[in-house]
Structures are given as structure tokens and as C-alpha cells.
Design a protein around this nucleic acid. Sequence first.
RNA 1: GGCCCAGUAGUUCAGUCGGUUUAGAACGCUAGCCUGUCACGCUAGAGGUCGAGGGUUCGAGUCCCUUCUGGGUCGCCA
Length: 588
Amino acid sequence: MKRTHMCAEVTAEDIGREIVVMGWVQKRRDLGKLIFVDLRDRTGLLQIVFKDELDKELHDKAVQIRNEFVIAVRGTLENREVINPNMATGNWEVIVSELRILSKAETPPIHIEEDSDTSEATRMKYRYLDLRRPNMQRNLILRHKVAKITRDYFDENGFIEIETPILIKSTPEGARDYLVPSRVFPGRYFALPQSPQLFKQILMVSGFDRYIQIAKCFRDEDLRADRQPEFTQIDLEMSFVDVPDVLEMNEGFLKRVFSEAIGVEVQTPFQVMTYSEAMDRFGSDKPDTRFGMELIDVTDIVKNTSFKVFSGAIENGGSVRAINAKGCGPKFSRKQIDALTEVTKTYGAKGMAWIVVEEGNIKSSFTKYLSEDETQQILKKVNAEPGDLICFVADTNKVVFDSLGHLRLDIAQKTNLIDESKVNFLWVTEFPLFEFDDEEKRWVATHHPFTAPMDEDIPMLDTEPGKVRSKTYDIILNGVELGGGSVRIHDQELQKKIFKLIGFSDDEAQKRFGFLLEAFKYGTPPHGGLAFGLDRMIMLMAKCSSIRDVIAFPKVQNSSCPMTGAPDLVDEKQLKELHIQQVEMDDE
RNA sequence: GGCCCAGUAGUUCAGUCGGUUUAGAACGCUAGCCUGUCACGCUAGAGGUCGAGGGUUCGAGUCCCUUCUGGGUCGCCA
């Protein structure tokens, strides 16, 4: 038998024709002398019918059919006696003349249906069954579409797709590397790439002008709902560009891919916000701009207050800021406000001060320590109205931003403040070039050591490196970091200066990135690029809450794969070839 | 490494204060009946290491300790 149609692709024109369809048995309804089977393939369902009166032998065979059997049927497509309006192919059915049971099936541990409520553990172990579910199939088909549109768009804009190696040299900064032992060189290791960063810059030196790759990347760090140890980036790099060129090209890409893949039309150019503005207004470098509740700085008002929690934080160089949860006063009990305090403590706050505004009265955890004037000034500054719940954190700026930024999201979620239909793209730009690493007591590159400083900030490299802004940009969608990149340094003298600032001696720089520095000696175009997290992009497009749902075979939280049992022990012989000896671990 | 949630039939769950003969329900599964079902229906039945180990107790699915598994999160992720 040769298949003529996919299940859901039959049309009215096929009525009366003999067709052959193949697939899995979704559901069997055995009425005795009449058996209905819903046959499923990638496209959907089609009802097939076995009638005892037409062919006794065929009917007896059909009695054996069970869920998830793989069968092939030949038959005639007919109009149904009773139409099912809830089914795409509900007008028709196949009157079967020939049946082949291609494969039997045991009762599956996962029911194949649109919304499974099966546990993650079972889904991961039986991933092949989980992937039979229509929504999982849709997710992976969407992923395929996005990959295709990506290649089309960048191809049309002069980008060349080039593969970079998976076995590379370890570069110590950044995330923990996955290592691969060398058989040929005892004691030496390849690393798996955390991103193709250095290779794509070298491709610019090679003159390819524009590079694109849908690249697998690896980072040996702990997992999250939106983080897997191996993940996929849409990675690109362009020559002879500055920041606006990169932004424009990628806005075009996002506009196109959202339109073609999911029919969502977005306006370009996107909103652009500097890092410093994002932190100030939202306490986050990836603000969700679908709602307000922005941070309000009350430091000036309480600078000289006798309330030590506030004045002490300010004396130590910190600040006091608030968010006003409009109308949330009556919605939160004391117990729930305590829960909000716990949220802020997660991010290092020592506590949270609050005011509930009532008609002609306020309830508060702290205003008794303030003067009447200070309280009134605060209420005015935060635009307090009856019904408002105002939350304050006083600490270092880092803790204040972190805790209030997350508290803002937490309250918005709890009170359904977020308009889920919004698609808010946002560029966050001008991240600081350096951060001070308290442990190592030195400046480290915020993005990576090849990121260019803003031209006008270059003079500050010598005086105030912490204030130097960089030519960086992150693309944020509804509070999720979708990607980021930068314009790179192409000037050798400037590069040397940066290395020096982050405490790399010439020797060290040579040892770590020598090949790149060597390449830069032979004529380097100005260049910059960006990488999108493909998994996250698909997750948001498919409205999933975990990237596991858009990856065919993801890892679970401890980075293992329950389906295959990886990672696993290997033969002693394999280890010997790789010059690896197992060391007994001490249990302490 | 820390904190939080969950683990009882193939699946999803209920199981009260530690005590009610044999740990229940729904779906699924098995068998029989059924000619227009599509949440098919009806009848009967099978199915349990209550994640594992230890402890407390006259008595543990229930309390305590340890551990495993899955999830969320902080740290981590240039």
C-alpha cells in the first residue's frame, strides 16, 4: 500500500475516491457490528469506519485494533451520515476496504492529547510519546518555520551561513565549559563552545562581511525554566557597521519572523532605553514594559531622617526607592504583605517597608519613625491615593533594584496586571563596559573583553572605568532577554588598553586569545553582531512557560536525560584511551 | 551548594487528628453485549513495594530522620 493522503489533508474533492491513509489510532469506538477509529498523523485526525455487514473478515481484524496501533487503511472517502462540527475533517469518513496493522502498541504511560497533565518526569522518560501530542508537534513545527524564515531573511540581506567548530579551545572567562578529552594529546581537552563568538569575529577578519549561523551552544551551569545546558542561538555578525545598523537589521528580522511565523505584526523601530534608564525606572536590565508600577526614588526626602534603616542605607552609598501598587491596599492582607517582604529578601533586601493608603488615613510599618513632613512628602512623591499599597526597600542600589524589580513583577502577576496580548520589544543599550568583581578585586568585562566602549566615554577609561558605557544592546521581549550583542573593538591599541584594565598581562591575553589578537593584526574591519536565544524566542511565540516545551529532547534539572540515561558510565577501555583515571570522591 | 513544592493503581488525584474489616475515585486497561459513534453506552473484572531506607508507636500512606526522583528559585549563567 502506498499512502495517498495525510489524514487532515483530505478535501471535499476526494469524496468517492479510493484513498490510502496511515497513522496512529487515536481512539476506537466499537459499537459491535460497527467500529469507528480516529486515525492520527502529523496533520490531524480522520475518522475511518469498519462495517461488519460489508466485510466480516475485515471487521474481525478491526476488532483487534487498540490505541496507538500503527495501521494503514485503503478505502473510499464518503460524506458522513452525522457530521461532527468539532473536527476539521468532521464532514467525511473513510469506509475501509483493506486494513493492515503495521505495528501493535502497549498501553502508553502518556495519554496522547492536546493538553497533557502528565508529570514532567513521565513526559521526559517517554519523550517520544510526549512528542506525539499535537501541541508539542506544533511547537517543533513552529521552530522549523522560524529557522527557515531566519535563513531566508538573512540570506536576502547578504548574510552567509557558516558552520564553526564544536571542538574548540577553552577560554576561561564566562560560564563553565563542557570539556572533551583529547585521545591524541594526553591531559589536554577541547571545550564545547559557549557561543561561536571568537570564530564569527575571525570570519569578519576573513572578509565574509556578514555571517549567520543557527548554532548549538553549551554552558555547564545550573538549569532554569528558560535555561538548558545545550541551547541554540541565531548568531550573526556584520562588518563596517555601528550600533544603529545592527539594530535596524535585527528589527527587520524580528518584524518578519513574528509576522510570518505567528501572524503577529510589530511596529519598528522598537523602543530604545539605556541600561541606566531601565535600572532607574524598572530595577531591571530586562524590563517588562507591558505595565507601569515604576520605581520611585525617595532618597532625597529621607536622607536626613532619624529612621536609621533609611538614613543608614543612604549613608552607605545606597538609596531608598518605592513602588506604588495602585489599588492593591485592599487586595493584600498582612500575611500577604509579609509574603511580599519574603520576595524582597530573596534578592538580598533585609526587609520591606510599606504603606497602605486609606481614605483620610494610612496604615504603615514604619511612618511612626518619620516626621509628619517626611511622610507627607513621600506620599506626594509616590502619588499616593486611597487604596494604594506602597512598598519601600532601602539598601545598596544593587539590592534595591534587584528586589523592587522582582517585587514589581511578582505583584503584577499576583494581581493580573499584565496584558498578555501585548508584544513589547525593547532595546536596552549602553551597558557599563566593566563591573567590579568584589571577589577577584578587579574590573571584569560586563559583556566580553572585545566589546567597544562608547566613543565619547573612551577618555574615562583612564579616570573612571566604572562609568564607561559600551556599545552593547540587549533585545527584550515582554521582560525576557531574547538576545544581545555589541559592536567590537577593531583597534589594537584600544584592545590592549582594555586587557590591561581587566588585569590581563600581555602574556595572559596571548595565552587566552592569542589567535584572535594575531588575526586582528592583519586588517580588521569595524564589526558588530548579535545572538538571539532561539529556544526562548520559540517559547514566547508558542506561549510556553519552559524552553523544554520547544526542544525535542531537553535535559532535566540536573542536566541529565531520563530517556537515554545520559550521562552514563563508560568502559574502562574508553577511559584508558583518553588517559583518564577515576578518582575516588571523598564524602565529607 | 542553599531554600521551597510534589511523589499513593498505567495516568491524574482523594485519603480528615496516627486507629472503620480488603487504601478509594475518575480516566485508561481486559472480557462480554451493542449498526452511526465522536467524552459512545451497558455489564463484569484485573490492576498498589503508598518513591526507597531507617526510626517513633500497641498501631504509620499519615509523625521524625536520611536518601532518590521531578519541578520552581537564589547563588551561578563574560
